[in-house]
């Protein structure tokens, strides 16, 4: 699936987008966030404040229980600060 990172998540992970293939046990957004730290130290430090993170699936805000599919566009980002 395509995954996008914004703001300090992007700078901590070191990329703005990538294709990832999580194991089959990853069913929901919450499972994805549990699995991601295994990708490396930059991921685990980016996900330290995971309760703070916002998640969008196909450009709509989603809850941790939201089920993700292989062709979804998943975005992870901190609370927004526009305006």
């Amino acid at each position: 699936m395509k995954i996008l990172y914004f703001a300090w998540l992007r700078t901590t992970i070191g990329k703005s987008t990538e294709e990832i293939t999580p194991p089959e046990t990853v069913k929901t957004v919450s499972d994805l966030l549990d699995w991601m730290p295994s990708l490396g130290e930059n991921y685990s430090s980016a996900l330290e404040k995971r309760d703070l993170l916002r998640i969008a699936i196909n450009q709509e805000y989603a809850d941790p229980e939201h089920v993700i599919k292989p062709d979804d566009e998943v975005a992870l980002f901190p609370p927004v600060t526009g305006g």
Binding site: A7, W8, A56, P78, P79, V80, T81, G82, G83
Partner: peptide, 20 residues
């Protein structure tokens, strides 16, 4: 609170992401 924008401020100590 909803539109996905993020502010990065440039200060004398470098760039700083604004907290919500």
């Amino acid at each position: 609170t909803k539109a996905p924008f993020w502010k990065l401020e440039e200060t004398s100590e470098g760039g700083k992401w604004v907290d919500a």
